[in-house]
Structure formats: structure tokens, C-alpha cells
Amino acid sequence: MAETSMTDQRDIVDHIRDNAGEVAGEVVVTGGVDTHKDTHTAAAVDERGRVLGTRAFPADTAGYAALRGWLAGFGVVGTVGVEGTGSYGAGLTRYLTGHGVPVVEVNQPDRHARRRKGKTDAQDAINAAHAVASGRCEATPKAGTGPAASIAALRTALSSAVKSRTAARNQLDSLIVTAPAKLRETLAALSSTKRITACARLRP
């Protein structure tokens, strides 16, 4: 029987190491998700960074469940990197963390990888997964719930209301400037609140 060379032995060892997890059913899957308003594109990579697959899902609860199940179909889901956890990816982030899946925030696509590999949703998802697998992204996303999130929402609504009120007053003042003299003089003598009330009562 011919002896096995050292090169052949190394090839056999590498093959066993590369596929040991797969044989044992213990492949640890890292996910990456490129998020958009209506759809999310996910990618799955294994421990060695090999791409296992990419797929798009609806950005709703059913889509989140399908995405999670799809990743789990490749093995044990380790960590999922999600772009835009504070915007388009907020719902998916809450869903995954609520089901015990660790999520890492991927703030910005790798520009170097984009230039080298091109720009597609699938490629962005793969880049996100690789960024997590390599340890380049480790930030835990904000939950988006609790008192802090509630206060932030109220502040946003208040700011918008104040801006809208200011814009409306400026528009009214501009209209009064060109109004007939009698009407202009009557409205100019009123306070801002009374002026608005008087104008609301005007009819053609």
C-alpha cells in the first residue's frame, strides 16, 4: 500500500477541520441584513466566512420570522448584524432580540468592500455578516423602548409642531401685508392668538 505523503495528510486534516462542524450539525451561522422600507435582504456565512446563501424577505412580522427560520436552516444562529437598527431595521432588531438572537449594529457599509465587490443589496448583506464575523462591528443596538424612547418621540412631535406653527404664522403675516387696508389695519392691532382666531372666522 502506498504511503500517504505529508501534503496529502495536510489536505485530509484541512478537509476534516473545514467540515467537522457541518458533519456534527454544529455550524455556527453569522447573519447580515441590508434593511429597506419594504424588504430586508439577509446573508448567512459560516465560521470561516463562506457565504451559505442570500435571500430577501418582507419587512413585516411574517418576514422577520421567515428570515430567522431561514438562518436557522443553515445551523446554529450566532449573531446577526443589522444595518439601520434605529430606522428601517428597528422592527427586525426588536423581533430577533425578543427571540434570543444577539444583534449587532452595522452602522455603515464597508466602502472598500463596496468598491471592490460592487453595490447590491445581497452584497451589502454579505459585507454586514463579514463585518460581524471579523469583529469589526460589536455595538449593541439601542432597544428603542422605555422612557428614553418615549421622551425622544415626544420631543420629535413637539419640534415638528413648533416648526409648523411658526411657518403658519409667517404665512399669515405675509397674507396680511397684502390684504385690503381696512382688513390689514384691523388684524394688525390684534395679538397673534386673537389674529389667528379672527382670520379663522373670515369667510369669502
Rank of each mutant, 00 (worst) to 15 (best):
E3A: 12
S5H: 07
M6Q: 12
R10I: 12
V13K: 14
V13D: 11
D14E: 14
H15D: 14
I16Y: 14
I16S: 09
D18G: 10
D18V: 08
N19H: 11
A20C: 10
E22C: 11
E22M: 13
V23W: 15
V23H: 13
V23D: 07
A24W: 10
V27G: 03
V27M: 08
V27Y: 05
V29P: 00
V29E: 00
V29F: 01
V29A: 00
V33N: 02
K37E: 11
D38Q: 14
A42E: 01
A43F: 00
A44N: 02
A44I: 01
V45N: 03
R48A: 15
G49C: 02
R50E: 13
R50A: 10
V51H: 10
L52K: 08
G53N: 06
G53I: 03
T54K: 08
A56C: 07
F57V: 01
P58S: 08
T61G: 13
T61D: 15
G63H: 05
Y64T: 02
Y64K: 07
A65T: 10
A66E: 13
L67V: 00
R68V: 04
R68P: 11
L71H: 04
A72T: 09
G73D: 06
V76G: 11
V76D: 14
V76K: 14
V77E: 03
V77Q: 05
V77C: 01
G78N: 07
G78H: 07
G78P: 02
T79H: 09
T79Y: 02
T79V: 14
V80E: 01
V80G: 00
G81T: 08
G84L: 07
T85F: 00
G86E: 09
G86C: 07
S87T: 12
S87A: 13
S87H: 12
G89R: 06
A90G: 07
A90K: 13
G91M: 02
G91V: 01
L92M: 04
T93Y: 01
T93D: 05
Y95H: 15
T97D: 07
T97R: 12
G98K: 06
H99W: 10
G100C: 03
V101H: 06
V103I: 07
E105W: 08
V106H: 02
N107M: 13
N107Y: 09
Q108K: 13
P109V: 14
P109S: 10
R111E: 13
